[in-house]
Amino acid sequence: MEALISLVIGVLTAGGVFLALRGTTFPVVLGLTLLSYAVNLFLFIMGRLAIGVPPVIRAAAEGYSDPLPQALVLTAIVISFGMTAFVIVLALKARSELGNDDVDGLHHDEDRHR
């Protein structure tokens, strides 16, 4: 199971990195989303993998998973959403100002508009 999770994190990272390196805004946003999945999972597994032991205090509980990474990741998920929203709106703004969706904000299709 550990190997599988490691593989999943690796694939998510690789996909995220590749997309983050694209030249247009939308794939970069997708890449950042994939990267945040990877990072959140990576942070989460710092508490190691455990099945059936949620960190909710009960008399009959056999044990608890580590609540600390979970609390950390919970807010990270919400903040990632805020960040994604911010970046995508930035992309829209760039498109409105420059008329293209290049991450470098080039004016390359100015000529076409003329």
Binding site: S6, I9, G10, A14, G15, V17, A38, I45
Partner: peptide
Amino acid sequence: AGAGTAALAW
């Protein structure tokens, strides 16, 4: 990057 992260996770 993916291989490195996976190895670290493992």
